Amino acid sequence: MWRLQFFLISLSILPLVNTATCPTCPTGGIWSDWTAVGTCATTCGACSTLKYTRTCLSDALKDCKCSGPTTTTQLCGTQACNYPRVNGPKPPCCTGTPTVINNWYHCVNSSTSQTGGSTFCCPTGGIWGDWSAWAKKDEKSVEFTRTRSCLSGGLNCVCDGEIEETKYACPCAPLKTITPENNPCASKTTKTPFAMRDPAYFPSTCDATVMLENSNFRQPFYSYNDKKGSYTCTTGFVNQAGQCQTGEFPTGDNDTSGQFWRFTFKCNLETGAWDRKFDDYDMKGITHIAQFF
């Protein structure tokens, strides 16, 4: 006598397997298993059909869209019925013929649709999401943390590495000075960067202090700007992409006493670079700065 066992032979459902050779995004994306909608009307003989659905698990991953149907209708209750049946001398299969699969008889039709069929796998190390912005634990501490999510965890693909990262100093690297030898602003101005000193760096408070000459004492920084109606000097600042922007920085007069302008920049915890807002323009996400003469 054949025991009754539900077996979905019409759906080729393969589990995720760990392998070191899997691409980050397998061809066709990464799908969930097929899930039955409702209950099969019959328990044997492949006499009924049932709707199945699946979801794209890799939509959350970068550049890993799924291709293929999200729903399908397939035979259900494919375990071959006992013969003769309790309610009459009907054949063991309404559809197909009894075939031994995994030591059980199932009703198999040569035209049965094999949905799915892709061998899914786990990329080496799993798939991590982007790191969050750094956040300071509290105002009194110098502890900064950021987190990330294992996007492939729901696919039974474990990620290697830590979910949380901690630093006990400012996440922004020190703000640097543009030098004549390393001057991305050369195409913006014919003037020369003044590389006397790097900005002061305060890792515990995530501040950087820039000292700009407020006179022509050391170099001819300032000239009269008719549009602004004051003396200005050229400043340049470079962003994380290495692009330079220049602007005219004002001063109150043409003093030659050798005094300085002091400006404080704040670390942007999202970009990991430095920001400062001025009246005429913003310095955002910068890594280097200089006064030109």
Rank of each mutant, 00 (worst) to 15 (best):
H106I: 10
N102D: 15
L50W: 04
S113F: 10
S32Y: 07
C94W: 02
Y52A: 05
T49R: 14
P69W: 01
Q114H: 09
S110K: 08
P89V: 13
W131T: 10
Y52E: 04
V37Q: 15
D63L: 08
C121V: 09
W34D: 07
T73N: 07
C107T: 07
Q74F: 02
G126W: 04
N102E: 14
G153K: 15
C93N: 03
K90N: 09
P98I: 03
D130I: 03
T73G: 00
R148W: 03
W31H: 00
V86P: 05
T42A: 11
V108H: 06
N82V: 15
T35L: 12
C159W: 04
N156T: 09
N87W: 07
C81I: 03
E143N: 04
N87L: 11
P26Q: 02
G38E: 06
P123N: 06
A41P: 09
G29N: 00
D130E: 13
T35A: 14
K51L: 13
S152C: 08
T99I: 06
L61P: 00
G161P: 01
C157A: 07
A135I: 04
T71W: 05
G125R: 08
T97I: 12
K62N: 13
S152I: 09
T147C: 04
S32C: 09
F144C: 01
G125P: 07
N109D: 15
R146V: 04
C64R: 06
C56V: 05
G28K: 00
C159Y: 06
G88D: 08
T147R: 09
P92H: 04
T70V: 14
E143L: 09
G125A: 09
G154A: 11
P69G: 12
L61A: 08
P98M: 02
T53Y: 11
W134Q: 03
R54F: 08
T39V: 15
S48A: 15
C94Q: 05
K90S: 13
K136D: 06
C66T: 01
T72V: 15
A46S: 15
L61E: 10
S149I: 15
S67I: 01
T49S: 14
T27H: 05
T119Q: 14
G116H: 02
P91V: 11
F144L: 02
T145A: 06
T97V: 14
C121E: 11
S132N: 08
C56F: 03
R54G: 03
T145D: 04
